[in-house]
Write a protein that binds this DNA or RNA. Sequence first.
DNA 1: TATTGTTATACTCTATAACTATA
DNA 2: TATAGTTATAGAGTATAACAATA
Lengths: 161, 161
Amino acid sequence: MMRKKASRGGRKAKAGPAINGAVEFGRLSRWVGFNLRLAQEATFQAFSRLSREIGEHPGRFATLTLIAENPGISQTTLSNASGRDKSSMTPVLEDLVRRGLVQRKKTDKDRRAYRLSLTPAGQRTLAKLTACAQLHEDNLDRIIGRDRVRFIRVLKRISGA
Amino acid sequence: MMRKKASRGGRKAKAGPAINGAVEFGRLSRWVGFNLRLAQEATFQAFSRLSREIGEHPGRFATLTLIAENPGISQTTLSNASGRDKSSMTPVLEDLVRRGLVQRKKTDKDRRAYRLSLTPAGQRTLAKLTACAQLHEDNLDRIIGRDRVRFIRVLKRISGA
DNA sequence: TATTGTTATACTCTATAACTATA
DNA sequence: TATAGTTATAGAGTATAACAATA
């Protein structure tokens, strides 16, 4: 949303034609939900660009990290942790396995489930994506400044509510 | 992402099996980008629920508000303000016009462009959606508390960067 | 009966490119 | 040539329901 950076101030602009001038965002610009969405879109796009530079989908980052942090995790647990249905995970993991980044092993203990882990190639790809994320985070730090800790705390309160 | 609210603290959990226990989010939980995404998903879902209760798509709110604040706006200007391609706007406006919420007028000045405005029904729908947004915002206020002003300021810095 | 993962299917949102009608 | 809006089409990303294998 809003790449154009038109008038965001909310100064009642007399509701003009807005054919080519500044667009009036009105109350929109004072709502938390709306600003959250704009900020998220901006950061996601920035991270997407960095990811695509190394030939990866931005969405793979969370998946690979969760597998790396929880080796042996099942697909169902992984999809729950990601807040997605297990069926949405199937094509993602299919892609990661096909490209040799993730390994699936059947266990004797429960022969229905897979145990997921990263291959060495998967670890290298995750390392590259992590470098992107760190670069991205450095950029954000420069923008956020000393408000960082409090900012994250508020974000966690919102997502945990 | 993450409805389950597993261990978010980042305490190195020895990388256990995570088959049915807590999932380790690792560094993920300390990154601004990731927390921004979780928070945005949570608020969007909450607002979606409120919108659907009155039979509206959550995405229509921003569109209707922008038209209300900028009567006579063209589709191209509207799509730019929304950060979307004009072709993405066509089916949205088609729906709003079909339902009698938005009016399109051709002008003599430029017979290629439409001038968009809300009908009385559109204004009523917007009023209902605005009430949802206000309710949602009240909930967020309760969560965010006195950090609100600073929080929005940081969000605006991020989306404006 | 319940659960793991897959399949079939569909929906939403988005974009690109080519088109038309104007300008 | 350039712009406003539409169309055709495609690609992510997601979900639901039904299914086979296993528990």
